[in-house]
Design a protein around this nucleic acid. Sequence first.
DNA 1: ACCTGAACACCGTTCAAGT
DNA 2: ACCTGAACACCGTTCAAGT
Lengths: 160, 160
Amino acid sequence: MANSLDDVVSGALRVLDQYGLEFCSMRRVAGELGVQPSALYHHVPDKQTLLALMADRIVAGVEVGSDPQKAALALREAMLSIRDGADVVATASAFRLGDSRIENELATITSPDVARTLLLYVFGHTQATQMHRQAAHVGIVAEDPDLDASFARGLALILR
Amino acid sequence: MANSLDDVVSGALRVLDQYGLEFCSMRRVAGELGVQPSALYHHVPDKQTLLALMADRIVAGVEVGSDPQKAALALREAMLSIRDGADVVATASAFRLGDSRIENELATITSPDVARTLLLYVFGHTQATQMHRQAAHVGIVAEDPDLDASFARGLALILR
DNA sequence: ACCTGAACACCGTTCAAGT
DNA sequence: ACCTGAACACCGTTCAAGT
């Protein structure tokens, strides 16, 4: 019956994926878990912290390895795999500029400057991709079929 | 007495600069103008549109010219000149990927791929800079004195 | 440890009505 | 054209109290 912190994060990610960041409220997450809104504050001090935990989980499976290009593509895939994932991850990461796991791992296989540039590019392009696709899905803009290729070319530009 | 659309945008930018995006509500903007919240909907269909108009005004003075490096620095300066400016501009721009004035002008002096990569990098780095500075200002993180230089080096990487 | 119930101070948006 | 007043369906967060 009783929820753990992991249950809360999982519930929040389900709400995010179904309704989007805009409607991912503490009250909806509580509803998803069958609990009162105030119950969430037993697990988490505030919404921002919950969002940071969600971001960690979204990128948890991303292995950097030894190929920065592969790492960038994996990161992009992880963020695109959940609605508004890029927004959540990018916002949470901006708060820890310079000490995120992925930035540090990228830095060891390239350089600190390339790592940061790459990471910010991946966030920016993926956020834009996801936003554009959402807008296309709602029909307020035409689908752009070239976004994946555009991403790859920008990547090559930075890693050249 | 009566407000124009320009007055509304100006009022919204004053509220943004004083209180930040989080507290830049329709109700506060209305208060700033000495008007009821519902009055804003005479000028603007919704908050998102108001934010887009604010973004346009923030980058209005940025001249692209013929030097992409200078253009990127000018864009960064414009966004940093107002609280949460990078957030507002980046979010609004993601909706128009591929047909913003600045992206188009950059494309003519470099290439479409460089223009997009550059723009996304500038947004990402400037958002992170502004967020990090805000966090440092509130004291939850140490100031990073290298952010401007880090920006310049990433720029050089893309434009090399 | 985990949760309820009630409250506080807010939101964006709509709509009839006023001038 | 520009605005008021009132309402609707929401927010995040706190806190005493329950099990």
